[in-house]
Design a protein around this nucleic acid. Structure first.
Lengths: 158, 158
DNA sequence: ATGTTAATGGTAATCATTATCAATAAGGAA
DNA sequence: TTCCTTATTGATAATGATTACCATTAACAT
């Protein structure tokens, strides 16, 4: 199992929801489960297909709505990187730095997820986060470093 | 004039195009001009509206196609940050680090562009870029650091 | 067990982006 | 300069992801 994708949910997420007038529903459970087992970042449609296997009553609309809901509650991050559709990933740890890197090919749009940050680099980013957070009054929940360029295959073909 | 947005085009971009069987056309000139004068990152539609003022014959399709063309030729970077539409910015310097930061509100989707990197931080990112570049055979042309969170206004409203 | 209302799911609508294709114009050759 | 080839354009239609709508359902506080 890829360590990078072994994120798990915060201890008592159901409690956090119930306390705020939100409900713990089957779609929410299922989608969180799928995201926490995912081996890569999934698109809404991929999540829908996997949910459907576990719970055929689910609708695509609900998937979108649930992802949005989870995002606004700090459990999920939405990532758009030029493919024409968004991908979603679980935010494993609310506290602490969680900034990995995405490589995007500007030609074929292929997409790699990497995690090459040293501790020193994570630290720099953490400080950056705090500085910007203070300055703009933003409560930053997550970050991603996007690198745009040409992938190995596309470079060969030119 | 905001220093951050005073990027200008590489010296002889028309020559670079002509040498490769590409043509220097009115839409390409105009769109590059608009991007190089832009005070912020523009969406395709915004670019279209500004182009239209200078050259009403232009079509929206051409704007999209031209942006794509300029992107693949390393002059423009496309950025998607969860608004539902992409934004485009000029790549001022092909060489050198050019990694600024985008703040995106996961609630109202507002978008800020900042440039708070110290020289030390730019340096760290440059090294990261080179490391990843080597490891994955990617020719990285640009990067952006995305911070996701809640903006000042949305935090007040809760 | 019950009532309130948050949440769901099917369908239709929206909106950004892309495909198509005939017409146009950039720029090398004569 | 004029002509020819073909890269590029622009209008329209098509696509595909995401969102709006609304009647129905089901969490969960009481």
């Amino acid at each position: 199992m890829n360590e990078k994708f072994s994120n798990h949910l915060p201890e008592n997420w159901p409690g956090r929801f119930r306390g705020r007038g939100h409900r713990v529903t089957i779609p929410r459970r299922i989608i969180l489960q799928i995201l926490s087992n995912a081996e890569k970042h999934l698109s809404a449609e991929e999540i829908y297909l996997r949910s459907y296997k576990l719970y055929p009553a689910i609708g695509l609309t609900t998937v979108y709505r649930t992802l949005d809901f989870l995002m606004k509650n700090g459990l999920v991050m939405k990532v758009e990187s030029g493919e024409g559709r968004a991908r979603y990933e679980l935010v494993g740890k609310i506290e602490g730095v969680n900034c990995h890197q995405h490589l995007v090919c500007i030609n074929c749009r292929s997409f790699f997820d990497t995690n090459e940050l040293t501790e020193e680099e994570q630290d720099i980013i953490k400080k950056m986060k705090e500085k910007i957070s203070r300055k703009y009054g933003f409560s930053i929940k997550n970050c991603i470093l996007h690198f745009y360029g040409e992938c190995k295959d596309c470079r060969k073909k030119e």
